[in-house]
Design a protein around this nucleic acid. Sequence first.
DNA 1: ATAGGGTTAG
Length: 643
Amino acid sequence: MARPALNTLATKDEFVRLCASGRLKDALRRPFRGVLWSDAARLFSHLFRACRALRPLRQLHAFAATSGAATDRFTANHLMLAYADLGDLTVARDLFDRISRRNVMSWNILFGGYIKNGDLGSARKLFEEMPERNVATWNAMVAGLTNLGFNEESLGFFLEMRREGMHPDEFGLGSVFRCCAGLRDVVSGRQVHAYVVRSGLDRDMCVGSSLAHMYMRCGCLQEGEAVLRMLPSLSIVSCNTIIAGRTQNGDSEGALEYFCMMRGIGVAADVVTFVSAISSCSDLAALAQGQQIHGQAIKAGVDKFVPVMTCLVHMYSRCGCLSDSERVFFGYCGSDTFLLSAMISAYGFHGHGQKAIELFKQMLNGRAEPSDVTFLALLYACSHSGLKEEGMDCFELMTKTYGLQPSVKHYTCVVDLLGRSGCLDEAEALILSMPVTPDGVIWKTLLSACKTQKNFDMAERIAKRVIELDPHDSASYVLLSNIRATSRRWGDVSEVRKAMREKNVRKEPGVSWVELKGQIHQFCTGDESHPRQKEIDECLKEMMAKIRQCGYSPNMGMVLHDMEDEEKEVSLSHHSEKLAIAFAFLSLPEGVPIRVMKNLRVCDDCHAAIKFMSQVTGREIVVRDVSRFHHFKDGRCSCRDYW
DNA sequence: ATAGGGTTAG
């Protein structure tokens, strides 16, 4: 673009445009030739706002001072605003003190400066001292407290504002809903909603989006969508709210549908849109769609934005493409905690504990400040790679050196870490002594460890506790019956089933991890609500047909687990999982070895099934040392009794 | 006549 000749006289509009586009020098060189001095204050205000750093602002400040404009209240207010935005509250305060006849604006600007910079103490003090407060003052207080995470206080100020007879306007209501969303307080949210409707502000785009977001955050997806449908038009924010809301409420497929619809009607996606859309691809492990959206992000020029990169790292990891996560990550040399944590998490997810630790060491060497999120990713990585010492060191570093308060999730990783390395008692002692309330997950983690360590007595004890904690959680019963089955106490297994029947607990469909074509897919067998269920069902149907064609019974198949060692374990499980695995076998790429490991209970039927799989896939399936583990009960394979 | 206060995401 050709620059205008700078020796010509500027119109005010041109001047404002130059300031807004950050071309401060050009702007400065032009207007003071022949522009009326009465306009100087207004022109300065544009200049101040255009400053992106303190240095040019100080230069301008000095210039304004020599020309006498800085004593003007209007100019001083603007100067103060510019300093406050750049975080220099000392100068802002100094300017404020020098203003002889301050107006509400002067007070509001300094107040806003304190609160935006997180100096709540000075903000409160100023708030008390203010001779006059208006709606903007209160709005700033409510928004500021919400931003700083003081949601209860924020809501309290909003109520006080109403008591003082102040009428909240469209500028402040957005923050109130944001604060209700943070508190998951749909009751207060609804009350404010009623006020919004009464005051006719419910058609404001900004109020509407935040209101809808509040409902969605509180789990009321339909109510949120209804609010957005009532708005006079679509904005990028309201579209983003729908996509994020659907993703967070478990409707990732719906989120992607909406994303595609946006393209169709020509609403341009922004960074937030891409972040949410890519997140929903992670949930669905939808690689193809994720790649496509990645491509769109490149086209839109937002693929190098840190939050987008973070989501991409996560998405590729969840889809089994660790090398693509790395490709995205290695294009970045900055120091964002979220992004680095996402890569650590990806390494952990894929069992590369050492690589996770190496990356963490980069953080310790000053690349980025580790947070609770980082430590969670790292602890997970250690527990899933069997790195007990490293994991415990990391936990100590987190609590002692960084003084971070571990959540129950952190403790669960440590319990997993201890449990997998055989320290069951230590793990139990940790749960009993930790300062946070243990949840079902942490006990179930310990129960799982009991199973792997074959400590059946402890397992019985923990299982009792877990079932007492939530008598309707089928997972605990399943785990217990698995444990009893492992020790071949079939009578006790039937007892668990009986207990489930009595308490009317329905077994949830099992969740399986399967590697397909180099990607990892998670799916719930027989779970109709699972987003990939349709696809899985189709493959299963195809598989069933083939099985029948060959004259075999359809409930033969196997489950493929990710194992600690390089090989894949094939174990027998219940009907639907067997079929899922049959599907997995069919889809495994050439060259991936299929080995049936020796610690299996395999009967003749199962041998036949393996043979059959080999026929269908045209691949060799190596069966190793199965003879020792034949296990029959009443002349039938135990797998028949298994659920 | 101007300025101050607002929504969505990792």
